[in-house]
Design a protein around this nucleic acid. Structure first.
Lengths: 230, 230
DNA sequence: AAAATAGTGTCTATAAGACATTATGTC
DNA sequence: GACATAATGTCTTATAGACACTATTTT
């Protein structure tokens, strides 16, 4: 079988190799704004600058695994339920160290779960409002922009919003997530009508109480994975 | 500026690096079927097996440039108008040689333009019907499947079809491209109504004659780039 | 009873899909 | 005039969007 024996000797060092990193754009929705998780770099290059969590892919791990690992190592955020490959950035001079190709990912995290903490190579880790990010290292501003446009598009034709919410949520909370990501207000009746017609939502026999007002029914998604709408 | 001076010495060889390749799924529509351009490998591994055109990314070229170069070198197909990044495949054992991460692209080519010819590392280059491909090397079957589903989705909300047609075409030819990619017949009146309502098409003062029947008006796209519909 | 948020229905406009006949060229 | 493909319109159904009031709980 030609996959296993090697009649022509193959020299893996015949070509100079680029480095490969993963970078992760982690989003959450809080305080009526979309936020992005950034780290303050503790090492050259861009030391002291804010950047996306990320780092070199190890020889023995897949790309998805590398993205999970780097997110956890640099920010303390573990077990992201939604982590999807975004795009691969490979401009020749995007990193001053050497040729670095970055496979970018984006993650969605439910609001209350995460308190970032600094990790390896990261002096700090912190949530920033997506519409007021500090200057970013490398081409990370472009990566964030790409991630934002992907997230907005995907919200329209899949059920990704589940990943930004706790397992049980009210319809108002769901609507708020949509409004935050799309950046505009939605009509309450139309939103509910449309959402309930998808059969993605399951009404629970529970209510959320809080404050001097009528309690809201809790719902959950029938599938905690991205589902195409319609 | 911390991007240029290097207070902490950075050793680019501190980590072992994976190899990075690009692989290209080139599509064309001909004989009422979607076709994919494959090469027969002339070297180990998978020597004698059919595979996607592709190869190692050079240190001095961007990813898009590498994809164009490999497509041309291995198949003789030059100047693909539509060549878009698809997804990056990085399973640890997808290549028997060493750790190889492949940035996959897909290209769309107008029907008559291309006569593939064998090139570097490729014993042969040939169009295959997408629904009857031979067994493919590496994980290339998965890459083709991903490309097909992306192409079908993109056809629904962008004007990518332009890239599969010559600059001037009839509405029947356009409809045929849609039918080939979607794998089902479309209603002629509804298709024309919808297409003409987009204002993407420009009617020309020309006709295509051929055979004992009424000639068809020729059209061109107003923009030869992917445009979002609606 | 005041305050605050939850919950609900109709009407209109637009888009999508089913469907058959006439028009115009070549041979 | 026979043949082959081009070109065209109506009706029905589904979807999206505008729009305002009542219900339920706490304090």
């Amino acid at each position: 079988m030609s996959t296993t024996d090697s009649p022509t000797p193959y020299d893996p060092n015949a070509f100079e190799r680029p480095s490969v990193t993963v970078d992760v754009v982690a989003f959450t929705a809080r305080e009526r704004k979309l936020h992005v998780l950034l780290i303050k770099r503790g090492v050259w290059p861009f030391e002291g600058h804010w950047a996306l969590p990320g780092g070199f892919v190890q020889m023995s791990e897949g790309l998805d695994a590398a993205a999970h690992r780097e997110l956890t190592e640099e920010t303390g955020v573990a077990g992201a339920e939604f982590l999807e490959q975004l795009y691969t950035f490979g401009n020749v001079n995007r990193d001053p160290r050497t040729r670095v190709i970055s496979v970018a990912y984006y993650a969605l995290l439910p609001e209350p779960s995460i308190s970032p903490r600094a990790g390896t190579d990261a002096a700090e880790a912190q949530w920033w409002p997506a519409d007021a990010l500090p200057p970013l290292a490398f081409d990370h501003a472009e990566i964030v922009k790409t991630a934002l446009s992907r997230l907005r598009a995907k919200l329209g034709y899949t059920s990704v919003a589940y990943a930004l919410l706790a397992p049980e949520f009210t319809l108002t909370e769901l609507q708020t997530v949509y409004e935050i990501i799309l950046g505009r207000e939605l009509d309450k009746r139309n939103f509910r009508k449309k959402m309930l017609s998808t059969e993605l939502l399951e009404g629970l026999e529970k209510q959320r109480r809080g404050g001097a007002h009528r309690p809201a029914q809790l719902f959950s998604f029938t599938k905690r994975e991205p589902v195409f709408l319609d």
